[in-house]
Simulated scan of single mutants.
Amino acid sequence: MVEMHLPHALGALLIVTIVVALIFDFTNGFHDTANAIATVVSTRVLSPQVAVIMCAVLNFAGAFYSTNVAKTIAKGLVDAHAATQTVILAAIVGAIVWNVVTWYFGIPSSSSHALIGGLVGAAIVQAGFHAVLWDGVLSKVVLPMVLSPIAGGLLGFLIMMLIFMLFARTSQHKVTFLFHNLQRLSAAAMSFTHGQNDAQKTMGVITLALVANHMLPASKDIHIPTWVIFSCATAMAAGTASGGWRIIKTMGQRIIRLEPVHGFAAEAAGASVIFAASAMGMAVSTTHVISGSIFGVGVAKNLAGVRWNTAQRMVAAWCLTLPSAAVVAGACLFVIRMMTHPAAVAVVK
């Protein structure tokens, strides 16, 4: 019933929050396109245009696969009473600002952690540190943030070593031909799992906004409305279709020199880690996972050939993402308060 009559029930601030959330989802799409297609483009297995279209379609499909991560965002990170409309709006704006800044400089940071950092920062400004469910943040965000790229790196390394063992006596031409075709499948899997995990963050935030507006019950088994899933899947697919060429260049060319066999190993490792994390409701960063996988493959291929200066720059951005987005979101909350509460504006004047 809520879904049938939703447009008549929405308040102005809720409409703004949903629109801004979908804008974030769009920026998430173009910011994180590189996660799924940088390797397949850099190895020339697919043209950029074909890769982007494939990624957009499979991002859309992946968003419908499950809602475990969306439920984590909606009920597992901040207290529902602290998650007001203004808090959620400030969190999304903070994440968008960080996305745009890192995209401009070609830094493959995490859109997911930008959104989570924004939500945590705005909640702290709104109601203090007790408003954050720290156990959920630690188990569903911080630990996966640290462990997922390590897991991707180890799995990428193991897959690459296994390939070396299995094809040690096979000609280079046959290996290249085989993995030229297999990498299309691994890139498709990476695109699907990206939609499965990343699109759900925005689903969770919009659902949290609906709970704050008393349009959905704040129950443990929270329901993600179908229209929310469809809207977020569409926004991310549209963003993906617009491309993210700055970050694609970093991911595909500035870590190691990739060939189809390396691209397959990295994508297979990354997709496996993301799929497992999504099943457990963990809000991992696809950027972190695929980056770790590429580094793992690079170590197996040629340790000296890995560009560690790029790694240092990326890790620095990863460490800064959560606190930076939190600070920006907190500042945004003050601005939104002044815009939406006349008394606050009067005090400022």
Rank of each mutant, 00 (worst) to 15 (best):
A123N: 01
A123D: 03
A123S: 15
I124D: 03
I124K: 09
V125Q: 05
Q126I: 01
Q126F: 10
G128R: 02
A131I: 09
A131P: 07
W134M: 09
W134D: 06
W134R: 08
D135Y: 11
D135P: 00
D135K: 09
D135Q: 12
D135W: 15
G136W: 13
V137I: 13
L138D: 02
L138N: 01
S139G: 00
S139R: 05
K140I: 07
K140Y: 04
V142G: 12
V142A: 14
P144I: 06
M145E: 14
V146S: 03
P149R: 01
I150C: 03
G152E: 06
G152A: 09
L154P: 03
L154M: 14
L154S: 05
L155C: 07
G156K: 07
G156C: 10
L158V: 15
L158E: 13
L158T: 04
I159Q: 07
M160H: 03
M161Q: 07
M161K: 15
L162Y: 07
I163Q: 14
I163V: 14
F164Q: 09
M165I: 13
M165P: 05
L166Q: 13
F167L: 01
A168G: 06
A168F: 11
R169Q: 12
S171L: 08
S171W: 03
Q172F: 06
H173D: 08
H173L: 02
K174H: 10
V175M: 10
F179S: 04
F179Y: 06
F179V: 06
N181H: 15
N181D: 02
N181M: 04
L182W: 03
Q183L: 08
Q183W: 11
Q183P: 04
R184K: 15
R184Q: 07
A188Q: 01
M190A: 12
H194A: 08
H194L: 11
G195A: 09
Q200S: 03
Q200N: 08
Q200E: 12
M203H: 01
V205F: 03
A209G: 01
A212F: 08
N213Q: 15
H214G: 02
H214K: 14
M215F: 15
M215T: 10
M215W: 01
A218M: 11
K220G: 05
D221V: 11
D221G: 12
I222S: 12
H223T: 14
H223P: 00
I224K: 12
T226W: 07
T226F: 12
W227A: 14
S231A: 15
S231V: 00
T234Y: 01
A235H: 00
M236Y: 02
A237L: 00
A237V: 12
A238M: 10
T240H: 02
S242E: 02
S242A: 09
G243S: 04
G244P: 07
G244Y: 11
W245E: 09
W245G: 04
W245S: 06
R246W: 01
I247C: 10
I247W: 07
I247T: 09
K249Y: 03
K249W: 04
M251N: 02
G252C: 12
G252H: 02
I255M: 09
